[in-house]
Amino acid sequence: MNNAWLTVLTRDLLQAYRRRSDIATTFFFFVIVSSLFPLGVGSDSAILSMIAPGVLWVAALLAGMISLSRLFATDFADGALEQMLLSPQPLALLVSAKILAHWLVCGLPVVLLAPIIGLQYALPNEAISTLVLSLLLGTPALSLIGAIGAALTLGARGSGLLVALLVLPLYIPVLIFGSLAVAASQHGMSPQAHLSLLAAISLLALVLAPLATAAALRISVE
């Protein structure tokens, strides 16, 4: 549909492939954090399956967040970002390609890994499928909202911690509905309401976040 858009997407994916260790960091962060909880809480499977929805969602959220500060930093350093700002294509469109790349690299692996971690937490099968579905619907919103924070803190002092302070409060609705969906199907209730709210948040973020991110980038790079 759009050459520039595809170029940005493939470029980001290629860069991610060249720096595989960065992706591995996100991936292992998720695995390690969610494996630490049983060690800290104890191996009682009743307790584990009770805390599983919240723990897995928080781990997914933090894993997505630690990679945010890199989202625009490399492009900012090598001047590619300035080219994008000057390009005739709408900046929001190009930004959406970068966000998609971030989700494919940091969000999708977490979604795919979640069933295995869910088994460790003694989650029943329906709950595991809801967990995967909720992550699939919710993690795009995390990447989209996170991009606004990453763009705002570009070039600010201590940006790593600042991103957390700006972005985590905005993540809370996603966290709440995501973990409630899993908990609902765990206890024989329908997770449909929570899942459709997650989808709604992701859709709204899909429309608004690239615009806000583009505006933030213009402020940060000038």
């Binding site: 705002l152 803190t153 600010a156 002092r157 940006s159 806000a212 933030a216």
Partner: peptide
Amino acid sequence: FLYLGFMALQASIDDPRKADRAGALLALV
């Protein structure tokens, strides 16, 4: 948290005009 984030963002950008605009965007979001 939103108030604290707004203040922290303004405090950590050195150029005041840039801080104004970044903070404004965050406030609107």
